[in-house]
Design a protein around this nucleic acid. Structure first.
Length: 115
DNA sequence: CGACTGACGCCGA
DNA sequence: CTCGGCGCCAGTC
């Protein structure tokens, strides 16, 4: 409740709630974090993601299911590898959101994040 | 102070 | 499918 949490931390918390084998989009995370339309902030937040904090940033993709990094980059390969390890099918740097998009439970979100 | 950039999203043609 | 435009905001130049 009313914990003084920076938008950045909210984003990290939300991303951490993503269960294995599932993925979420930047806009979705932004919305759940209380930042509607601020998908870019999510990207910035993940960029600023401190190593001390364990955040499954690799579970965050674009709204169309495509990986945020260009194919051939280390980050992209790493993300794909991690996703595949969680039974997530990745084709051409893309994921079938239709089958792997995360369906957050508002009740659980409100409970865990105390919004 | 303004202009540009960026792990983005959505709508229209 | 691709391409262009608008919104949105923090950080950098």
């Amino acid at each position: 409740m009313t914990s003084s949490v920076t938008p950045n931390e909210k984003i990290w918390q939300t991303v951490k709630l993503i269960p294995p084998g599932k993925v979420a989009s930047y806009g979705q995370i932004a919305d759940l974090a209380g930042l509607p339309g601020r998908a870019r902030m999510v990207g910035k937040a993940l960029k600023s993601c401190p190593k001390d904090l364990v955040v499954p940033w690799y579970r965050v993709l674009r709204s169309n299911g495509q990986i945020a990094f260009p194919p051939g980059s280390e980050q992209n390969a790493c993300q794909v590898g991690l996703l595949q390890e969680e039974d997530v099918v990745v084709l051409n740097s893309r994921v079938s959101m239709k089958s792997f998009q995360w369906h957050p439970d508002l009740g659980e979100i409100l409970y865990k994040l105390s919004f």
